[in-house]
Design a protein around this nucleic acid. Structure first.
Lengths: 200, 200
DNA sequence: TCATTTTAATTGAATATGCAGTTAATAATC
DNA sequence: GATTATTAACTGCATATTCAATTAAAATGA
């Protein structure tokens, strides 16, 4: 007997399947029929829910960005000691536990698509602005508490994001095993000392 | 009357057409028949020369990497004064005149493909290693001349590449006009002072 | 509670298009 | 005359999407 799920259940199923197929097959190898067959439904059902592939793509981007912005990952407000609080944030930024809440290949693929798709670009712009602003706010706080010394918090926050994304790159193309972890840690140290020494 | 070109002329024509179609249509919109019709040849001729699309892709990657490594862009050995020489290199690294010898979209697209294609990945690894090693050699030279102060030249070179790639990212997602140029310049300054202050 | 109506989920079959690649024939070139 | 360049015709397959039909679930009314 056929089980009819409600849209509220079926749509997330489809997006999850889309995500998994993207991980396995990449942008070019992902089709509606593969997404459908993976969860045992008819391809038409996907069109029924999302109208077309483009809409589905955008909804997946939204979902992944939400995942990326999960507060659980980045919120350390429970740490009372300011120095510890600051270090915890820096550690998570450079640990890549956080970056890898979303599969790097899929993440990267959508970055690429944003070059050709205004709507995807707009979403990523918002996401990066969110991250930058979050960091900015924290930097101002830690500056007031005397943990660091920054005058241009926006610039400092931009720099952190830049370095993080650069490291993601680095890990793809220059990394060989342990070398990368060491390097990421060095980059973090250099950044922290720049923040403390009033370079920004 | 039909003009027969030699392989030595036709193959570069095809690769150039491939590149142009990639710029206009992106990875997903690029097909052999589009590449062919753009230069008025039959699609089968492309198969004749490259055997399949995969080979053509690899040959284009090789070509673009060669372009990227063009010595004209990065060689400033004619500048006699060491300080000027050093500054010239730093300026070109952060000016993006050099990075944009290849269309950013195409460059980025192949970066993405490298995540799913070992052969493309291998090529980019070599390219980045080349850049890193080039910078490393220069840093050692400038260290000896007393222009900068580095003990771990490899780490410093890695850091420069990381920052450059991060900036490329930044320009996509966080930049708004003039802000980016200012920011890139700041990043350069912070880097240079780190090199001079013996942070590496 | 039971039957009926309405709505939503799901499928099947079909369409048109585009794709990479094959094979065989023709034209130019050396 | 042999090699190479080039095309023509074609294959088989995958693609996104449409449309109409079918089935299940929910809402309604008695």
């Amino acid at each position: 007997m056929r089980k009819n799920k409600s849209a509220a259940l079926r749509k997330p199923d489809i997006l999850e399947s889309y995500y998994q197929v993207l991980i396995q097959e990449g942008l070019e190898g992902t089709s509606i029929s593969k997404i459908a067959s993976r969860i045992g439904i008819h391809p038409s059902l996907i069109i029924h829910y999302f109208k077309n592939k483009e809409n589905m793509k955008l909804e997946l981007v939204d979902l992944l960005i939400e995942k990326y912005q999960s507060p659980a990952m980045i919120n350390f407000d429970h740490i009372e000691d300011d120095e510890e609080h600051f270090n915890a944030i820096m550690d998570v930024l450079f640990s890549f536990k956080w970056n890898r809440t979303v599969d790097p290949g899929v993440h990267f693929g959508f970055y690429y698509l944003s070059l050709r798709n205004e709507q995807i670009l707009a979403r990523f712009r918002v996401m990066f602005k969110w991250l930058r602003d979050y960091l900015c706010e924290k930097l101002i706080y830690f500056d007031e508490k005397g943990i660091i010394s920054v005058t241009d918090a926006i610039k400092a926050a931009d720099y952190i994001v830049t370095l993080m994304e650069g490291l993601e790159f680095h890990s793809q193309f220059l990394a060989n095993g342990k070398h990368f972890d060491d390097f990421a840690q060095s980059a973090q140290k250099i950044l922290v000392s720049a923040l403390k020494n009033g370079e920004f």
